[in-house]
Amino acid sequence: MSIGRDDVLHVARLAELAVRDEDLPRLVDQLNRIVDYVAQLDRLPAEAAADPQAGESDPDDPFLPGPAQVTLRDDVPGPVPLARPPAEFAPEFAEGFFLVPRHGAMEDL
């Protein structure tokens, strides 16, 4: 599979990443090199690749790769262990809200 200049620009837009024109040829080359390399997974027959969620779980080894391992905590709000209260590190904090500048007034820091 080949990645072209337009593919890189499309993915960069999805990733909210400004890419300079002079960097594009290098990025096209390198992304093609990486995608060609990872494409070797195609050598595995489809049926060989098991569903990560399938099979019996082992209580001594509960590790499941990827998102399958995530367990959700009870939805009970608790204090966040901050060393300093938000009012100290947010420029302005009022009635439980962070006050931020209007976008039009943002300055280059």
Binding site: V8, V11, A12, A15, L17, A18, R20, D23, L27, L31
Partner: peptide, 17 residues
């Protein structure tokens, strides 16, 4: 675009792809 270096940008692009 300015804040991330080249390797981080590459990985973000591959990951998004």
């Amino acid at each position: 675009g300015e804040g991330f270096g080249p390797e981080v940008q590459r990985r973000i692009l591959i990951g998004t792809y």
